[in-house]
């Protein structure tokens, strides 16, 4: 963490957090450094601060979410902001109101920051062009989920000291995963070597152009890795055109002790959640306190989101 301290004076160039692709190394370091301060706060008995007192935060979720939404809600409340959460799944948009109409309506309420999740890639970018406050992307389509990648980086740094030089395997449904994309951008920026492991039908076109090594064999992909990141396989994709069955997927791509044995002995297991036990990950491995840092990811997620809210709320 000592390396990160040096960048304390860095200012964030963009008004919005739309994706890791827009961030520089020093900006990432600044966010992670801020987040580290909040880890301690979140463990103390009095968790409330007044950093964002008087500020209004709107969580605008067009897609169902449990952990990301509650994490952002808690983060805003611990900073003292007034937090409002709106779930617009199957609501106004479907009735003909456009994203821009919704944005203009919310904008009239003078929020200081909008946290948005949307099923369409690029929706937060569009939103950010139409409102006067900061926009934080909480996941758009299959494009980016920047705060998830940042919390993953913080978790790794917390355990291993740094990301640089580590070998990270990202496994599973890469095609549909915004978490995978954001992590690929962030971990490469921080100096990790990245293997992606998936059946060919779940690999995006030209993924190797993102600077990753591509594997379709778990044991080869996990060989000598420091970190194994598993991705959620959505149930609707187990059958039909992408994969033959959940059983076959688990056999070849599920994280099991024999496959995990290929990674380094002290390798860590990560998962953005929610997990499908017995589909992409063996249930005992998921709960292995020596290897799995899945719960720590959730814990540090609040800290990272507090850092992002603090930094971007002050931007505009």
């Amino acid at each position: 963490m000592a390396v990160i301290k040096k960048f304390k004076a860095v200012k964030i160039s963009q008004n919005h957090l739309l994706g890791i692709q827009d961030l520089s190394f020093s900006e990432v370091s600044y966010i992670l450094d801020e987040a580290k301060d909040f880890i301690k706060l979140n463990k103390s008995t009095s968790k409330k601060t007044d950093i964002l007192r008087g500020k209004t935060q709107i969580n605008l979720f067009f897609e169902p979410s449990t952990r990301t939404q509650s994490s952002f809600e808690l983060a805003g409340k611990r900073l003292g902001a007034d937090v409002m959460s709106m779930n617009i799944v199957n609501s106004a948009i479907k009735k003909g109101e456009t994203l821009i109409d919704t944005a203009m309506t919310l904008n009239a309420m003078h929020p200081d920051i909008i946290v948005v999740r949307h099923q369409d890639s690029g929706a937060p970018n569009l939103l950010s062009q139409k409102v006067n406050c900061s926009v934080i992307n909480a996941g758009d389509g299959r494009r980016e989920h920047p705060t998830q990648a940042l919390l993953d980086a913080l978790t790794i740094i917390n355990r291993r000291g740094k990301v640089e030089g580590l070998k990270i395997a990202i496994c599973g449904d890469i095609l549909h995963s915004r978490v995978a994309r954001s992590n690929i951008y962030l971990m490469s920026m921080l100096g990790a070597e990245i293997n992606v492991v998936a059946p060919k039908t779940l690999l995006p076109h030209s993924i190797e152009r993102l600077g990753v090594n591509v594997f379709t064999d778990m044991k080869k992909g996990l060989d000598n890795c420091d970190i194994v990141m598993m991705l959620r396989l959505q149930n609707e994709r187990m059958q039909g055109s992408f994969l033959p069955s959940a059983r076959e997927y688990y056999e070849y791509f599920g994280l099991t002790p024999d496959k995990m044995a290929k990674a380094k002995k002290e390798a860590l297991i990560m998962h953005p959640g929610p997990m499908n036990r017995g589909v992409e990950i063996d249930t005992n491995l998921a709960d292995d306190i020596n290897k799995s840092v899945i719960r720590e990811q959730v814990e540090l997620g609040v800290a990272v989101r507090m850092a992002c809210l603090k930094i971007y709320c002050k931007k505009i």
């Binding site: 690029g122 980016e144 915004r178 995006p204 993102l210």
Partner: peptide
């Protein structure tokens, strides 16, 4: 178009 750009933008190709 399906390719690197569609992968980066997260748009189906």
């Amino acid at each position: 178009n399906e390719g690197e750009i569609s992968t980066r933008l997260g748009l189906k190709g």
